[in-house]
């Protein structure tokens, strides 16, 4: 970041100075560091984990944290630290897979109904009202109940419910953007609807959606681990934070570290995404 003198042409300087601004904010920097580390753990847990997460050792059951096992060992003598690190793979995957399909569907539907309005928009309004009438977790759980427990079904369930929130946001933003001159100009110039929606409106309307996406990734980890804890998400012996906490629950008075440590990983990752979201909101939102 020292070679600002050699900065590329003017167009990027505005964006660059905003990036500098964001990086100078301690919150964003901390968030980016946490998520950066989390991605590293998720991609190559084997490098960071001291032991094999599934190695069972009946001679070292439920040992308290020590130099040898910093997070202790579980009821099968597996190394807790290694299991928490290996769980990053599943839990970070949740942040992506539980949100990205909802994002894609929601953005597309939201942009279309926001642009065309009419009957489709009216139906959309009722569908949104109906889906938000269910508590999020209740509807997700009900869908999981029908499909059966497991990670893939959990992703399907969250997508079935979650796209509504993206669509609602996108629709409102597209309608707001339609009021701008560039949108009318596109229509006057006879551009195709597809071009106006996807080349002109979408890039301008996407900012709040991206900011919400960061929050939603944090929520996805909370939701995914909650379902894992309840026995409806990832299934043991899969190392997943919610599952790990549930496994430790029975020994909570004697081996508290089993449940405590995975929870700290959840809190840290959630915090990381929220901080990035706040930073992005400042970075992307035009000032003035």
């Amino acid at each position: 970041m020292t070679d600002t003198a050699a900065a590329p042409p003017e167009v990027t300087t505005a964006r660059k100075s905003r990036l500098h601004l964001a990086l100078r904010k301690p919150g964003f920097l901390v968030g980016a560091t946490i998520i950066g580390m989390s991605i590293l753990f998720a991609v190559m847990p084997g490098i960071f984990a001291p032991y094999d997460p599934n190695f069972i050792d009946y001679t070292a059951v439920r040992q308290a944290p020590s130099w040898e096992h910093p997070f202790g060992t579980d009821m099968l003598g597996r190394d807790s630290l290694s299991r928490v690190i290996h769980a990053y793979t599943v839990n970070m995957q949740m942040a992506v897979l539980a949100t990205v399909f909802a994002l894609t569907i929601g953005v597309t539907v939201g942009a279309l109904v926001g642009y065309y309005r009419g009957v489709a928009d009216m139906i959309f309004g009722r569908v949104v009202d109906a889906i938000i009438t269910f508590p999020f977790l209740v509807l997700v759980i009900a869908v999981v109940a029908v499909l059966g427990p497991g990670l893939i079904n959990m992703y399907i369930a969250i997508t079935v419910v979650g796209w509504v929130y993206y669509a609602r946001l996108m629709r409102a933003e597209v309608i707001a953007q339609m009021g701008n001159d560039y949108a009318s100009a596109g229509i006057v110039m006879g551009y195709s609807d597809r071009r106006i929606i996807f080349r002109h409106l979408l890039p301008n309307a996407i900012t709040p959606v991206v900011v919400y996406w960061m929050t939603d990734m944090a929520l996805a980890i909370l939701l995914g681990s909650s379902l894992g804890y309840l026995g409806l998400g990832a299934q043991p012996p899969q190392a997943e934070w919610g599952v790990l906490i549930a496994e430790g629950r029975n020994f909570i008075t004697t081996a508290w570290w089993l449940s405590l440590m995975p929870g700290i990983a959840i809190v840290l990752t959630g915090l990381g995404f929220s901080l990035i979201g706040d930073g992005l909101a400042d970075l992307l939102r035009p000032r003035g």
């Binding site: 909650s226 804890y229 906490i245 909570i252 929870g263 959840i266 809190v267 929220s274």
Partner: peptide, 22 residues
């Protein structure tokens, strides 16, 4: 902000362990 990043079941387990069991 930290509270918002905590799953409800985790908050519950912590309260349960310290205020009820301990």
């Amino acid at each position: 902000q930290v509270g918002l990043s905590m799953p409800v079941f985790y908050i519950g387990l912590i309260l349960l362990t310290f205020l009820a069991a301990h």
